[in-house]
Amino acid sequence: MLAKRIIPCLDIKDGQTVKGTNFVNLRQAGDPVELGKAYSEQGADELVYLDITASHEGRKTFTDLVKRIAAHINIPFTVGGGINELSDVDRLLNAGADKLSINSSAIRNPKLVDDIAKHFGSQVCVVAIDARNTASGWKCYLNGGRVETDRYLYEWAKEVNERGAGEILFTSMDHDGVKTGYANEALAHLSDTLDIPVIASGGAGKMEHFKDAFTLGKADAALAASVFHFGEIPIMKLKEYLHEEGISVRL
């Protein structure tokens, strides 16, 4: 049976891991390759590395880091951040990344999704969506949550699904960093209406939150950062718990 996936997310700035709370106040949390290896040995199913450096030099540092990750990590990994055109995709895939995550650039230029799918295959194209529940419904945000758009989560997710995305990584900005659980209702709606896997992100604080994301939220994978980085939830313990709760995981 296909296992539900547990995915630690590592935010990278200038070649180092950081994690923000509600997207600000960054704290240091270790060497990306060492951390990735440790997660892989603890039972992580995939890794996500997000480059939050914006500068040109930073991008080169990140590409070199992707090569080191590919050489040392024996599970799949996704990279994101600063991917604006096909040449960025080509560069990161050639450095050894398995999948690319695009976010703001997809909203600015939706055809990028079609192009990535056509040139490299849907399986490499993860579309990340940051959204917040507003009075008029779930709205999408740009630039790490700083800029509101006129796009709505469900319509946008459906559109990128049709354009050829291979997966949706949905972060609820209302839940991110506050550790009270994932946005399960919105997740379940996405899972019920899309043909592609949905990764839950934002809100993990306790092991039960992962169970809820898989059962109530019907997510295919759950992503988290700080609960793993600071050792609050050991991955192996989490997977044993999920297994006991009747959820299919890779042990």
């Binding site: 296909l2 296992a3 996936r5 199913d45 849907s122 399986q123 291979g166 997966e167 899972s191 019920d192 209406t193 899309l194 043909d195 592609i196 896997p197 019907k218 295919d220 994978a221 890779r250």
Partner: peptide, 10 residues
């Protein structure tokens, strides 16, 4: 809708 394609994961 719960049988996603591609078959992706472990």
């Amino acid at each position: 809708h719960h049988d996603k394609v591609p078959h992706m994961g472990w």
